[in-house]
């Protein structure tokens, strides 16, 4: 009885007792959830337009952040290093399309998947050779990202909101909004969605695969850069960052591989739930450390009941 009480009653009493702390926990969950969502979004875009499960998305985050910091270390002013990194990410997209995707077009999915593992390994080696493998500090101050925090006092308690996190959230919202506008309102965006629906038909109306692939991988690169800056600011820039890309996997399982909305909602949900679980159940009952596995177990349970994920694209079928 006592255990049941500690699982089903006590945590909620705790939440009610200290609502300000609850808000703090949810906020922090939201922030990391935003980053999971961004990474998942990179996966979704590439998967939708080319049916490739891009294992390299995580390393692209590291590579983008590393390039930015590395260029700065080489003496490039921060505000110039940012656009230069974008240019690097663009050429990376072109190179991947030319050297990897185009020669492998029409090969089975698993071959392309293996190729993205190859890209991962290459980027690790390449990044390390050029910029070195040690952990670097993200150049937040040089990029005029505000530091410090604002303190709110709801319910007589207090909630601290880091400006860094706030900036990350705003940047993510801007990025996602412009991406949605791009996908829904422009010629190329429409072509990307068309490609997601029917590959052959898209070819038949003259949509150019190579062009779309470069665009999509470049967008994934931009997303990687934003994620890299935000995450690098919290944890430093190192190849260990790649691990967070693994967190995108449960997000994808949850959100469905093809749904932009699913990636966002799935990311936020996992971010918030894993924080709540850690604080209210994990630490008191299991001694903490649940954040590393919670997302995967949660995704597993969801998949038992909804194999297409929570937001998997509704399959329209008619004859």
């Amino acid at each position: 009885m006592d255990l049941l009480g500690r699982i089903f009653v006590k945590p909620f009493q705790d939440m009610a007792a200290a609502p300000d702390f609850l808000i703090q926990v949810v906020w922090e969950g939201l922030v990391s959830g935003t980053l999971y969502a961004l990474i998942a979004l990179g996966f979704v875009l590439i998967y939708k337009s080319s049916r490739i499960f891009n294992f390299a998305q995580g390393i692209m985050v590291v590579f983008a952040a590393l390039t930015l910091v590395g260029l700065h270390q080489m003496g490039v002013p921060a505000l110039l290093a940012l656009p230069m990194t974008l240019v690097v990410m663009f050429f990376l997209a072109v190179a991947i399309e030319r050297l990897v995707l185009r020669p492998l077009v029409n090969q089975p999915d698993i071959i392309l998947f293996m190729a993205t593992i190859g890209i991962t390994l290459f980027l690790i080696g390449f990044g390390e050779t050029i910029f070195g493998g040690e952990t670097k500090r993200m150049i937040t101050r040089e990029l005029y990202i505000p530091a410090g925090s604002t303190i709110f006092e709801p319910f007589g308690g207090f909630v601290a909101i880091e400006h860094l996190d706030l900036t990350a959230l705003v940047a993510a919202i801007l990025l996602v909004t412009s991406l949605l506008v791009f996908l829904n309102k422009t010629r190329i965006g429409r072509a990307i969605r068309a490609l997601g629906d029917d590959h052959q038909a898209a070819l038949s109306v003259g949509i150019s695969l190579s062009m779309i692939w470069v665009v999509v991988w470049f967008i994934a690169g931009i997303i990687a850069l934003v994620t890299g800056i935000a995450w690098g600011a919290r944890a430093g820039v190192s190849f260990a960052l790649e691990i967070i890309a693994l967190k995108a996997l449960p997000v994808l399982l949850l959100g469905g591989l093809e749904s932009v909305a699913g990636a966002i909602i799935g990311g936020l949900a996992i971010g918030v739930l894993e924080k709540l679980f850690e604080i209210y159940w994990g630490q008191p009952l299991m001694g903490g450390g649940t954040e590393t596995w919670f997302a995967f177990v949660f995704a597993l349970i969801v998949l038992l009941f909804r194999p297409q994920g929570l937001f998997g694209e509704r399959i329209i079928e008619r004859v």
Binding site: A194, D198, A201
Partner: peptide, 26 residues
């Protein structure tokens, strides 16, 4: 020279008008 494929092959999740507009891609 453009092909209309067997079985229509419309883009299911795009609206009819968006489908038409994809034809103007080139």
């Amino acid at each position: 020279c453009i092909q209309v494929m067997e079985g229509r092959r419309c883009f299911a999740h795009l609206t009819v008008e968006e489908n038409l507009m994809t034809g103007a891609f080139t």
